[in-house]
Amino acid sequence: MSIRGEHHLACSERIIQLMHKVLDGDATTDEEDKLMKHIETCERCRKHYEELQTSTSLLGQLPHPNPSLGFTDSVRMRLPSNRKPLVGG
């Protein structure tokens, strides 16, 4: 899971942190510019950033299927009654 060692030596972990900041929408315009400038010249970082974008975009493209048609009814049938049942009598 470690990022370290995986990456190009010349590119500090800072750049990767910056990528995540940009992806989180937390980066300032200046920071975004800094990243864009960097990946223009650094092939490895560009690839890294593109891979991050691709994987999150793939997640976003998963469908949101509905549960079964009888879902709500099944839940309703399993709901406990709030009234205490009369025992005996």
Binding site: I3, Q17, T54, S55, L59
Partner: peptide, 20 residues
């Protein structure tokens, strides 16, 4: 944030060969 960053890094490595 940390968990999302690490999750993204893990998925990046695993999904990089997937074609859209």
């Amino acid at each position: 944030k940390t968990r999302i960053h690490r999750g993204r890094e893990a998925l990046r490595k695993r999904l990089r060969h997937v074609n859209k």
